[in-house]
């Protein structure tokens, strides 16, 4: 029995030494949607997805994933329920081959079945276009390829919810376009929660978006609605 909302939060709050990084965030995400999280620097976007994935413990509030309360689960348990997470700052196993990086992501699910692991790894590498680099050390890849590898490690887990923290940061234009194509291809396969600064990407790929400002939800809607929203414009222009 799958819940309609893959993800839901209520009153999610994170306080660092008296300052609220997130305050009372209520959030829902429908299964299958591509949702972008935008907001100025320091709006609390990374903190928010950190609390969803379990990297950052919430000060208070609750998180439901696929209808189940996961607030008290440690990160690795949430991941094994079907959340994949890519880091804002590239984090791969630099001294291991590209293939092994992806295999580590697959193996947690497929375990000892060497053939199945290999097939899945090959499939994922093919899909993101890293087949040629499969035997290089991840640390020797270009920055753009490392970001792609991060995405491959997420895909390899067949996630129900795929959290991407600024995936296009520092990418060149053709790489950004390849990324957008990949996200569009994933539509229907998984739910995507995307933190993104590049407005072209946001407007083109997302079904809906949420704007965070000062740790609180400022607005939520379709790209068109958000584009027309005066509050959002004020927050981005710094006028409010």
């Amino acid at each position: 029995m799958a819940a309609v909302n893959i993800l839901e939060t209520k009153g999610l709050t994170k306080t660092y030494g008296g300052l609220d990084a997130n305050y009372n965030v209520d959030f829902t995400l429908k299964r299958g949607e591509i949702h972008a999280l935008i907001g100025p620097n320091g709006a609390g976007k990374s903190t928010f997805v950190g609390m969803i994935s379990g990297r950052i413990p919430a000060t208070c509030g609750k998180v439901w994933f696929d209808g189940a309360d996961v607030t008290r689960l440690p990160a690795h348990k949430r991941i094994s329920l079907g959340i994949a997470y890519t880091f804002q700052i590239t984090s791969v196993f630099g001294k291991l081959p590209v293939r092994e990086n992806v295999a580590l992501a697959v193996r947690r699910i497929r375990g000892r079945d060497r053939q199945a692991v290999r097939a899945k790894v090959d499939g994922v590498l093919e899909r993101v276009g890293l087949t040629e680099q499969a035997d290089q050390l991840a640390g020797d890849l270009s920055y753009g390829h490392q970001r792609v590898l991060e995405i491959a490690m997420g895909l390899a887990q067949n996630p129900e919810l795929f959290i991407l923290d600024e995936p296009t940061q520092g990418l060149a234009l053709p790489e950004v376009e390849a990324f957008m194509q990949l996200v569009k291809d994933l539509r229907g396969e998984t739910t995507i929660l995307l933190i993104e600064h590049n407005m072209n990407v946001v407007m083109e790929v997302s079904d809906s978006l949420t704007v965070l400002n000062n740790g609180e939800v400022l607005a939520r809607g379709t790209p068109e609605e958000i584009r027309a929203n005066a509050d959002v414009q004020a927050a981005y222009l710094g006028g409010a």
Binding site: H76, I79, F87, V92, F93, L104, Q157
Partner: peptide
Amino acid sequence: ENEERARMLG
């Protein structure tokens, strides 16, 4: 090699 990454692979 990277404890945090391994944790976030589940």
